[in-house]
């Protein structure tokens, strides 16, 4: 706690010059320190408490003024692993609660509790590659490729979808976007074209 002098660590730090700008920030406290020292030299007072209080006043003032530095200067923390795990849990809960739409619910339509396997098929004579892009995969035209079936021009894929509405298109050879002729509906995509729509029910929707 101290070095045998009766002064605190902070006072020693002050004496050692570790806080060089403290006196400039609080001349009054510095004056108090000088007066207390003079009194001691002249045998009028016992050193320690007064000096300590004066120095600590400077230090506390400095701490108040530079509190913001804590946020911008490197800090060293001692963290219990169990508390770190708790922090991660809080983060996960926070993201799930406040994250708005999620990957499991890209349309913000709810019903993200289950998934249903849905089979998509397209006859695409002459195609060398067919993919499925839609609201369920952020319209990534490479994420869900279809596989050529036994029939030469039949392409298929089965994907898990959440109950609710999904819009999608087939992408042929990475260039041509075409609707699904077997979709429940075709709707305006807002860009002057049409998207296919499928409504997935929790109990065994099957597409062909």
């Amino acid at each position: 706690m101290n070095r045998g002098s009766g002064f605190s660590e902070d006072t020693h730090a002050y004496f050692d010059g570790d806080r060089p700008d403290a006196a400039e920030r609080d001349r009054h406290a510095a004056d108090q320190f000088a007066q207390a020292t003079a009194a001691f030299v002249q045998g009028e007072a016992v050193p320690g408490r007064e000096v300590d209080r004066a120095v600590m006043a400077v230090i506390r003032a400095e701490r108040r003024q530079s509190a913001w530095r804590w946020f911008i200067q490197p800090q060293v923390f001692r963290l219990r692993p169990v508390l770190a795990a708790a922090a991660i849990f809080v983060a996960a809960v926070g993201i799930s609660m406040f994250g708005g739409g999620s990957a499991a619910d890209p349309d913000g339509a709810g019903n993200a509790l289950t998934t249903v396997l849905v089979r998509f098929e397209l006859r695409a004579p002459g195609a060398s590659a067919v993919a499925l892009a839609g609201s369920f995969n952020s319209w990534d035209d490479e994420a869900v490729p279809l596989v050529r079936g036994s029939a030469e021009d039949l392409w298929t894929v089965t994907v898990p979808l959440t109950p609710g509405e999904h819009q999608y298109l087939f992408v042929i050879d990475g260039e041509e976007w075409i609707p699904d002729p077997h979709a429940h509906a075709q709707v305006d995509d807002g860009f002057g074209q049409r998207n296919s729509v499928i409504i997935v029910a929790p109990r065994g929707v099957v597409r062909s």
Binding site: G101, S138, W139, G190, F191
Partner: peptide, 20 residues
Amino acid sequence: LPTAPLSSKALEGWAKRGRV
């Protein structure tokens, strides 16, 4: 307002950039 529909529509529009 919910932002997921907007994000999805933006990604859709960019995916169709060849024609949009």
